[in-house]
């Protein structure tokens, strides 16, 4: 193992890890927004919204994220959407993971027993008041863990933006593999950083999950 080489290049990997973290955070925020909107549509009273929500989930979960990213980044300019690679990465991956989060959020909401909704409605609360005061606080607690799984998947999927040349961890590893012919060492550097990010995120999710449990 070429330790000396690793010592020489690791600062570049650290920089790249920072890009990966930025990508992950922004993608997660966009994903959660899309997930909340998607879930709201899937659970809407109106059939049109339910259909749009279901189509969103089916199409974005049914095709490769890489292709979605390519359509946005390379095909975007044809329909007047000009994005740099980083922006395209955040939007492409965010909308993609939003489809998965839609199902997570919806799943948590519909798992709240029907009696909860009935009890709140019986007291005279409106649909929105019932959702906001009775259903959501319970569902939010159930969502933490599965959203953590989505988040773990999301962090790994940020590697896809290497294919549109965003200089994040996987792209950096690929470039140094090409120039040094040391695939194992470069994999090790990038891999350790990925695992640190994923481990830290996992701990944060577990902490949050414990925090929000009733009692």
């Amino acid at each position: 193992m070429d330790i000396e080489l690793m010592q020489r290049v690791y600062p570049f990997f650290l920089q790249a890890a920072w890009v990966t973290i930025q990508l992950s955070v922004l993608t997660a925020l966009l994903g959660l927004t899309c997930g909340a909107l998607g879930a709201a549509m899937r659970l809407s009273r109106l059939a049109v919204f339910r259909f749009i929500g279901a189509a969103y989930v089916s199409v974005f979960r049914g095709t490769p994220a890489l292709i979605q990213l390519f359509i946005l980044y390379f095909g975007g300019p044809q329909v007047g959407i000009q994005l740099d690679a980083f922006e395209a990465g955040v939007i492409g991956l965010g909308v993609n993971v939003g489809a998965y989060m839609t199902e997570t959020i919806r799943g948590a909401i519909i798992s709240i027993p029907k009696g909860q909704r009935e009890a709140a409605r019986t007291l005279g609360l409106s649909r929105w008041q019932t959702f906001y005061n009775a259903i959501l606080p319970q569902a939010a607690r159930l969502m933490v863990r599965p959203l953590g799984v989505n988040l773990n998947m999301l962090i790994k999927s940020t590697a896809l933006v290497a294919a549109i040349s965003v200089v994040e961890l996987t792209y950096t590893a690929q470039r140094y593999i090409g120039s040094t012919y040391k695939p194992f060492e470069m994999f090790l550097l990038a891999g350790i950083l990925y695992m640190i990010i994923i481990y830290a995120t996992g701990r944060a999710v577990a902490w949050l999950d414990r925090r929000v449990q009733i009692n």
């Binding site: 009935e118 709140a120 019986t122 007291l123 005279g124 409106s126 606080p137 319970q138 607690r141």
Partner: peptide, 24 residues
């Protein structure tokens, strides 16, 4: 109707077999 029924339900208390208390 939503407005009306919410108003009406304020005057009608209901108790369920399975309590349906809000656990949180």
């Amino acid at each position: 109707y939503e407005k009306h029924i919410n108003q009406m339900r304020q005057d009608i208390g209901m108790v369920f077999q399975h309590f349906n208390l809000f656990p949180h």
